[in-house]
């Protein structure tokens, strides 16, 4: 195993966002009393954990040049079935396994259609978003699952070393995701498929297999996220996960992953999710009127990305391109990333 260097963890892309995030935290700790307290900060981490877990899978999908719009619906179906199982009295581990299994199955269908049906990912997942959502309505008969047993909700609500378990799961998933993406052959083939499909093909990478697997992983992790989600609230509603896909995609792309494929990182996606979490926390703490919420969030997203890109640009000028590697090399000049 190659030695892990700091530069690999915090490349140019991540540092820019990290600085923006730190700036935001600095401003908030002055402006919003109560922000810089451990209960609040750990609360933010727990709140972003569900989105962040899915974002790890989404990052891999997007790096291959795909996209997964169906995660919100996968979240809903998995949460429903896990909730029903937990209510029926399955053990905790069985419930977790069930969540993973359902997520993987639904994600696997996406993967099959993309990789072997050769249908563009956006069409497949737009279609399955609709289909899975419909299935969710049919399976549930429109009814919520309420009154989940305490041994199950403990997964979402127990404290461990000052942090609730969902946040630990998020960190665990992020580390594993990072390891797979950067330290394994599979990870390298993920970048290769997205960065240069022709090259990947010539290098003997089985492109369909990689495409299938990233969608499988995206579904699998969303299934895990669904279990965490269900355990946190102890109740499953039918409209779970409406609009979830855009939150996940936002976390990933704010984290610097290119929508055109070939570049991106797990660290970035996690930072992106945390950034979004801090922003929505700040809106309430700063007592900004709810009517202004959309405008402020929109400006912050644009502002963060613009600052991030200018920080990166100045760092690129400061350091020679070769020492940084390919990730900063092809800077977009007209908003396009190829």
């Amino acid at each position: 195993m190659a030695r892990v260097r700091w530069r690999d963890l915090m490349g140019v892309r991540e540092v820019g966002l990290l600085l923006v995030l730190l700036g935001l935290v600095l401003v908030l700790s002055v402006a919003a009393p109560g922000f810089l307290s451990w209960p609040n900060l750990s609360g933010v981490l727990v709140n972003v954990s569900v989105v962040a877990i899915s974002a790890v899978g989404m990052t891999m999908v997007i790096i291959t040049g795909g996209i997964d719009i169906s995660v919100g619906s996968i979240l809903a179906v998995s949460a429903l079935l896990v909730g029903q199982a937990a209510k029926a009295g399955t053990g905790l581990w069985q419930a977790i396994a069930l969540g993973l299994l359902i997520g993987a199955a639904l994600g696997g269908i996406n993967g099959l259609l993309v990789a072997y049906g050769r249908i563009p990912a956006i069409i497949v997942t737009l279609a399955t978003m609709s289909t899975y959502r419909g299935i969710n309505f049919i399976l549930s008969h429109g009814a919520w699952v309420v009154g989940l047993p305490p041994y199950f909700t403990a997964l979402g609500q127990t404290n461990f070393l000052g942090l609730q378990i969902p946040a630990w799961i998020m960190l665990g998933v992020a580390v594993i995701g990072w390891y797979i993406l950067t330290q394994t052959r599979f990870g390298r083939s993920v970048y290769a498929v997205g960065g240069n499909m022709q090259g990947a093909y010539l290098a003997g990478i089985k492109i369909p297999r990689v495409q299938f697997l990233v969608f499988l992983v995206s579904g699998l992790l969303t299934g895990l996220a669904a279990t965490v989600y269900t355990a946190r609230f102890g109740l499953v509603q039918i409209n779970t996960g409406m609009g979830y896909e855009l939150n996940v995609i936002a976390a990933v792309v704010i984290g610097g992953t290119s929508i055109m494929g070939g570049s991106g990182s797990i660290q970035g996606a996690i930072l992106g999710a945390i950034f979004m979490g801090v922003v929505s926390n700040a809106l309430v703490l700063l007592r900004i009127s709810a009517f202004w919420q959309g405008v402020v969030v929109g400006i912050l997203i644009l502002g963060a990305v613009i600052m991030d890109s200018s920080i990166r640009a100045s760092m690129l000028r400061a350091v020679s391109i070769h020492s940084i590697g390919y990730r900063g090399a092809a800077e977009p000049t007209d908003g396009r990333e190829r």
Partner: peptide
């Protein structure tokens, strides 16, 4: 002009324009 990918830009304005309507 600023070289930001369309997806991110319009994700931001997706929120912001709705926000303007709300405000």
């Amino acid at each position: 002009r600023l070289g930001i990918p369309p997806l991110i830009v319009t994700l931001g304005t997706w929120t912001a324009y709705r926000g303007v309507a709300m405000v």
